[in-house]
Each structure stands twice: as structure tokens, then as C-alpha cells.
Design a protein around this nucleic acid. Structure first.
Length: 745
RNA sequence: GGGCGAUUAGCUCAGUUGGCUAGAGCGUCGCAUUUACACUGCGAAGGUCGUAGGUUCGAGCCCUACAUCGCCCACCA
């Protein structure tokens, strides 16, 4: 029991209270009173990356989710909050490899796949333990018995099953295409993993040869040894006469075959109105090349060096060196017509920081535009048996209102992303992650190959294979791993028993009720969950998406290692208590808004915790002899006070239901301090001393009731102190506060 | 280039459907004192709600333009 004679000391009580809750079993919804008659309410916790420790952003996320799950639990829902961890393939692979390079001066290729994966797994095991402790400290009422990991056996089965079903439906294919290659991380990345950074660059306007009729402009002269065409607008009168002509050119020590083509996508107003097409090293050029059936010459390799095909002048050189060599070559021959400095955007791999080099490579893709027949659809406007596409599903799920995104403005951003979406590259040349569940024959061709397989010798399988089930030849697994978001996209249902479609959890808790990610992963994760859930289950993964913003430091700067402005939530909790931190992260921070984190705000809520403590102590010492089971009638004044408190309760409930937690919490704070403590208690003091027993008992009951009411209302936000005070209070039943009935129906 | 957000007290920010005499925390200044609580109470100063127009009985909130800051998307070569 806490010592009521001293100021509130969170350290003394928080761990004990968390244990009390956990031992009660109430985090597991089956253990709640009358569990079977309760309506389900579920949240899948966005699994934190297994890359290390939790930061304030996680604390914000869990404070919101815990407030909601506690509210719903008290409201009588069968409340499930399912925790877990994400293996975060690329992030973890990158982080551990960096550590390895720093410590031993070796990269993953130096030590080999098996050794590297072992090191990563050890690292992840340690991180997960630390993160579980931190989640407890935040007070998160998660069901630990259902804890999941994106790489455990159950999730592995889900990933392979999803892959196979998509492959069988023609939605996953292997294709040779120009993709975003990260030379630093030595892997392909998806479009969403590419960031743009503005930089000054040089725009060179030149001719391939003195007699070449059309000048072109480029910021990357080194790629011009890979050009196979020049594209102009079909209506451009300057160049119309050259369309379809072909030129053989000696260029920078190599021979080019340049065809003049007409393409609508060319802007005649920009530059010279003509574009040199490099099919192998530009995603846009690759599209144009495909339309015109142009040949592709790869002149840059995976390490950012020029290949033999680039010609002897630059072969083996780094792209930057080659750029200067070719620019000089042009200058010498008087082919360079103009050099100007312009702003350009360079593409950066978000994890490694490497400069993206578009390269043609064989990769696995999810086809977002392929039509397929959807089975068992519960999606609005997409009936079962109808042809649809993954894009359609993603769009309709939100457009129909079946999924509600908060704040609204992100719906527009979401639609815009979908409209411009290309096929999703899901293969990575990393070693940590779900290996692609495809096996190929080592030697001879299997006679029993499925006609469906567009590549020879491939078998897609849920069970791991050593031999081909048909011809018994030895097979080996595809060396690539899956994009980490492939497994995360299954999260809402892979955690509930899927692929067993009859799993009890899946039927009860899916679609989940609430999803609370940061807006920065709207595309990476939220959209992909809609895609997967739509295709595999024919339903939405969640009903409400509440996007939270980013926390910055007190000067509005991002938290970062280089600024060394990081704040460990555990330190804040040590100093001010969990409840204070939670309030500081909830009050006044609306959905989708970034917020500056100020320790003064936490301090203010620590004071509030103390205020609750003292007010409760006052009430307790002045209601001695009062029995809550006894029926007492209130004076008119006291009845009025209680009624007003209930008006507040109704308002707060409304706010909670609308997920306006930031308003609910602030109202409760304000009421407790400036109405309950400053006015109600002060006015009650003389009556508590009154000789008139009726008046005295009425005042006691009034104080008791309003305090109890507020403890319940505050519990979702400040669970520790409210539960601690609750322990001290005389009550009708000796149950924990965590399962008390919410005071508003 | 396209889209979005922010601009409210010295600082950090709320303000839910237009009703506001514009609020909170911190900070500042006065007063109180063995008080449930100094992690306190009472009170005060401090705002032409970015700028300019408009709609309305009424605008911090709605509309239009502009300015500043920030974010997202996009390989005008």
C-alpha cells in the first residue's frame, strides 16, 4: 500500500500496480467479467522495430492506445490490445551491419550469410527484451499472452501463405525491370524507400556528334554512353523530320545506335525539347523505351561503376569520375553547347543514405493493377466474384467510408499516392528477413513444371523444400528476402490466427477497431495493410486510423543522434512518473499534428498527480465513517454538484468516442483542479464540520461520488495514480479500477 | 512543378458544429501562510488571434488574395 502521508511518489507504486494488473489477468480479454457477452474491441499495436530502444514517439503512441483500450475495457467491451515487435528487415540489417563495420571493419559479405544472420538474431533478442520492459513502464495494458513477432513461426506461415496466394492469383511476378538500386546497402528498394534531396547540379546541353541534328540536355553525361534513342514531342516542328531516323555515332570511345522517336510525354518547352533516352538507368526512360521497344544497354553496375559496355574511356570508373571525363570529352570536341547550374533532386535510400542508382534487375513485384476475381468480399462496393485490382481495393476501402482516416486531410494524400502507384518491388538483396518462399531447380528442368510459372524451374511453396516434389531434383531457395512491409502488412490478422480462417481470434477481433500509426508510415504500412487484408480476407484491416504526428524537441527540431537532443522516456518516467508523461503526451496534441516536447509540461502534470493525491487524501480523511453501500440522500446543493460532474462525464465520454482524447484529458484536468479542488472541496469544508449530521453526510457522499467519478474518468489517462488512490478508498466491491464500469452508459 | 499544414500572451501550445468578455502550462509581478496540497491558494500584468479584403446579427474559426515558416509527393531531361 502506498503511504498517504507523503507527496505522491510514482516510483514506489507504478511497478507494483502493473504487477497487480498483470496478475489479475484482465489484459487478456477472456478473463474479463462476463467476457462472452462483451462486444469485441481490438487494437493491434504497431510493432516497434527490433532495432533497439523505444523513444518518446513510442510513448506517445502507447499513451493514446492505452487510453483507448482502457476506456473501452471499462465501457464493457471485450478489449484486446495485442503487442508485438517488427523484425524490420532493412532497418535492422543496416543497423547491425553498421555496428559490425565499426567494431570489426567487416561488412556482411565478409563474414557470410549464416554468421551475419546469427549476429542479427542475437541483437534482436536483446532489443526485444528491453523494449518489452519499456512497454510495461508506460503502463500499456497489452495482452502479453498473445505477443507476436513478425518473424516467429506463426507469422512465417502467414507470410508464405500470403505470398503463395498472391502468386497463384497472378498478383506476384518476377520481372526484369529498372528498379531503385541502393549501391551502399547493396539491395533494391521500393519507390517509397527513396527520399529526395535538393542539390545544385550542372545541366549540360550537348550534341552526341557534330553532325547529329538535335542537341539534348542532361545532368548525368556519364549515362549517355547507354543511350539508345532521342525522344521528341510528335508535334514539334523543329524535329518532326527526323522522327524514326537512326544514327550510328562514335561517342566517348564507344559506338551508339540512336533512334529518334516521338513520345507524348516530352515537354517541347523544356530545354531543347529533346531527351536522350537511357533505358537501363532511368525509370522514366525505361517506360519510354518499353513503349518504343528500344534496346537497353547496362553501363553502370551494382557498385556504381561503369561497365565494359560503357566503353574503354570510362569502363571501371566511378560514375562521378566518368561524368567529368565525358564532360571534358564533349568540351574538347566542341560538342558542349551550354553548361548551367540548376537545382536538382537526387534520390537517396532512406535507410543507408546511399545515392540511388536505377538499374535493370530481376526482382519480385506485387502487381497493383492486375485484375482478379475477389472471393468472400465484405468490402463495400466490391462484391464477391467481381473483378477488381489491389489499387481498387485500397481506394474503395477508404472512399466508401468503411475505413475512417483521422485527420481527414490524409485521405487526400492517400488517394494521391494510390493514383500514382507503380508495382511494388518486394524483393531485397538483404540477409535478415523473410526469405522468399520460392525454390528453383539446381540443375535439370523439372518435367512437371506448372504452366503458370512464367520463369522456368520455380516452385512456390509454403513448406520449405529440399527436393522437387514432382521430379525429386535438388532445389534451392531464392536468396532474396522480402520487403519488411510485406510481413507488417499482414499484422492485423497474422496476429489473430490467420491463415486459419476459422481461428476464434480472427473471427472475434478482425477487422480491428483502431489503428494508431504515425503519418510517416501511411503509405509504407497503412496502405499495404489495406491491400493485404482486402485481398486475403476480403475485408478491411481496421475501422479507424488515427494518425499521430512527430514529436520534436522544445525548440521544434527533430530528435536526432547528430543533435544529441534525444530524450529517453525512461528518464522522464524516473523523474516525473508515467502518468505525468502520458498526460503531457496526450493533452493538447491533436491527430496528425507535430508537437514540441517540453519537460515543463511533464512537470506540470506531475504537479497534477500530486494534486489528485492530496485531494484524495483530504476526501478520505473527511469521510471517515462513511459507508458507500449505505443509501444517503443528498442536499439540493450537493445533488446539483454531482449532476454537474455527470454532465462533464457525458461530455468526456463523447470526446473519447470521437477519439478527441486531447480534449477529454484537458477537460478532466481542468475540472479536477479548478472546480473539484478549488471550489467543490473548499465549499464543502464548513459542511464537513457541521453539527447537522444530514448536511455532513451529504457533503461526504458528494465528495466521495465526485472523486470516484473522476478516478474512473481519469483512469485511461493516468492509470497508475488512479488505481493507487482507488486502493485506499472504501468501495462497494473490492475490484480493481481497471475493470470498473465506466460511469456513462 | 503539384499538394498539405502552421502563423493565437515573453516561451510552448489548446480553442471540437461560427456565439469568445480568446484559454492552459511555464515564466513575470503582488498578496496570503504550521493550509488536503509550497509539487499551495487568491489576484494582476501581458493578445488589434500573420497581413489585406469579403460573407454574416455575430469571425480566432467560413471565403479570397498575399507574406513567412514547415512538411509530403514528383527522376523537366
Amino acid at each position: 500500500m502506498a503511504d498517504f502521508s507523503k507527496p505522491y511518489n510514482p516510483k514506489e507504486t507504478e511497478e507494483r500496480i502493473y504487477d497487480l494488473w498483470q496478475k489479475s489477468g484482465f489484459f487478456t480479454p477472456e478473463n474479463l467479467p462476463n467476457a462472452d457477452t462483451r462486444e469485441p474491441f481490438s487494437i493491434a499495436m504497431p510493432p516497434p522495430n527490433a532495432t533497439g530502444t523505444l523513444h518518446l514517439g513510442h510513448a506517445l503512441e502507447y499513451s493514446l492506445q492505452d487510453a483507448i483500450i482502457r476506456f473501452q475495457r471499462m465501457r464493457g467491451k471485450r478489449a484486446l490490445w495485442l503487442p508485438g515487435t517488427d523484425h524490420a528487415a532493412i532497418a535492422t540489417n543496416t543497423k547491425v551491419e553498421k555496428m559490425l563495420i565499426k567494431k570489426e571493419g567487416k561488412n556482411r559479405h565478409d563474414i557470410g550469410r549464416e554468421a551475419f544472420v546469427t549476429i542479427v538474431e542475437d541483437f534482436v533478442a536483446k532489443s526485444r527484451g528491453a523494449m518489452q520492459r519499456q512497454i510495461r513502464q508506460i503502463g500499456a495494458s497489452v495482452d502479453w499472452t498473445r505477443e507476436a513477432f513478425t518473424m516467429d513461426d506463426q507469422r512465417l506461415l502467414a507470410v508464405r501463405t500470403a505470398f503463395k496466394r498472391m502468386f497463384d492469383a497472378g498478383l506476384i511476378y518476377k520481372g526484369f525491370r529498372v528498379i531503385n538500386w541502393d549501391p551502399k546497402g547493396q539491395t533494391a528498394v521500393s519507390d517509397d524507400e527513396v527520399e529526395h534531396k535538393e542539390e545544385k547540379g550542372t545541366l549540360y546541353t550537348f550534341r552526341y556528334a557534330p553532325d547529329f541534328p538535335i542537341p539534348v540536355a542532361t545532368t548525368r553525361p556519364e549515362t549517355k554512353v547507354g543511350d539508345t534513342a532521342v525522344a521528341v514531342h510528335p508535334n514539334d516542328t523543329r524535329y518532326r523530320q527526323y522522327i524514326d531516323k537512326e544514327f550510328t555515332i562514335e561517342f566517348a570511345g564507344t559506338k551508339l545506335q540512336i533512334k529518334i522517336i516521338a513520345d507524348e510525354s516530352i515537354d517541347p518547352e523544356f530545354g531543347t525539347g529533346a531527351v536522350g533516352i537511357t533505358p537501363a538507368h532511368s525509370l522514366i526512360d525505361a517506360d519510354i523505351a518499353q513503349r518504343h521497344d528500344l534496346p537497353m544497354v547496362q553501363i553502370i553496375n551494382e557498385y556504381g561503376r561503369m561497365t565494359e559496355s560503357a566503353g574503354p574511356l570510362v569502363a571501371g570508373k566511378k560514375t562521378k569520375e566518368a561524368r567529368e571525363i565525358i564532360a571534358a570529352w564533349l568540351k574538347e570536341r566542341n560538342l558542349l553547347e551550354k553548361e548551367e547550374t540548376i537545382d536538382l533532386n537526387i534520390s537517396i535510400a532512406e535507410r543507408s543514405g546511399g545515392v540511388i542508382e536505377p538499374l535493370p534487375k530481376l526482382q519480385w513485384f506485387v502487381n497493383v493493377n492486375a485484375k482478379f476475381k475477389i472471393q468472400n468480399s465484405k468490402l463495400l462496393h466490391i462484391p464477391s466474384g467481381e473483378e477488381t485490382t489491389l489499387k481498387d481495393i485500397m481506394r474503395q476501402a477508404v472512399a466508401s467510408g468503411q475505413i475512417n482516416i483521422m485527420p481527414d486531410r490524409f485521405e487526400k494524400i492517400y488517394f494521391h499516392w494510390i493514383d500514382n502507384l507503380r508495382d511494388w518491388n518486394i524483393s531485397r538483396q538483404l540477409w535478415y528477413g523473410h526469405r522468399i518462399p520460392v525454390w528453383r531447380h539446381k540443375s535439370a528442368k523439372c518435367k512437371a513444371q506448372s504452366a503458370k510459372l512464367e520463369n522456368n524451374n520455380l516452385i512456390v511453396s509454403i513448406e520449405p523444400l529440399t527436393h522437387c516434389p514432382q521430379c525429386n531434383d535438388i532445389v534451392e531457395q531464392d536468396p532474396d528476402t522480402l520487403d519488411t512491409w510485406f510481413s507488417s502488412a499482414l499484422w492485423t490478422f497474422s496476429t489473430l490466427g490467420w491463415p486459419d480462417e476459422n481461428a476464434k481470434d480472427l473471427k472475434l477481433y478482425h477487422p480491428t477497431s483502431f489503428m494508431n500509426p504515425g503519418y510517416e508510415i501511411l503509405f509504407f504500412w497503412v496502405a499495404r495493410m489495406v491491400l493485404m487484408s482486402g485481398f486475403l480476407l476480403g475485408e478491411i484491416p481496421f475501422k479507424t486510423v488515427y494518425l499521430h504526428g512527430i514529436l520534436r524537441d522544445d525548440q521544434g527540431r527533430k530528435f536526432s543522434k547528430s543533435l544529441d537532443n534525444g530524450i529517453d522516456p525512461v528518464d522522464v518516467i524516473e523523474q516525473y512518473g508515467t502518468d505525468a508523461l502520458r498526460m503531457a503526451l496526450v493533452v493538447g496534441i491533436g491527430p496528425g499534428n507535430d508537437a514540441n516536447f517540453d519537460l515543463n509540461k511533464v512537470k506540470a502534470y506531475k504537479h497534477f498527480a500530486n494534486k489528485i493525491w492530496n485531494a484524495a487524501r483530504f476526501v478520505l480523511t473527511h469521510i471517515e465513517g462513511f459507508d458507500p453501500k449505505q443509501d444517503v440522500s443528498l442536499t439540493e446543493h450537493d445533488a446539483c454538484v454531482v449532476e454537474q460532474a455527470h454532465t462533464l462525464a457525458a461530455e468526456v465520454t463523447q470526446d473519447m468516442e470521437n477519439y478527441h482524447l486531447y480534449l477529454a484529458a484537458e477537460k478532466l484536468y481542468h475540472y479536477f483542479w479548478h472546480t473539484f479542488a478549488d471550489i467543490i472541496i473548499e465549499e464543502a469544508k464548513p459542511r464537513l464540520q457541521s453539527k447537522n449530521a444530514e448536511e455532513r453526510i451529504s457533503a461526504q457522499k458528494m465528495l466521495y461520488e465526485t472523486l470516484v467519478l473522476q478516478l474512473k474518468l481519469l483512469h485511461p489517462f493516468m492509470p497508475f495514480i488512479t488505481e493507487t488512490v482507488w486502493e485506499q478508498i472504501p468501495k462497494k466491491h473490492e475490484d480493481l479500477l481497471i475493470i470498473q464500469k465506466w460511469p456513462v452508459a
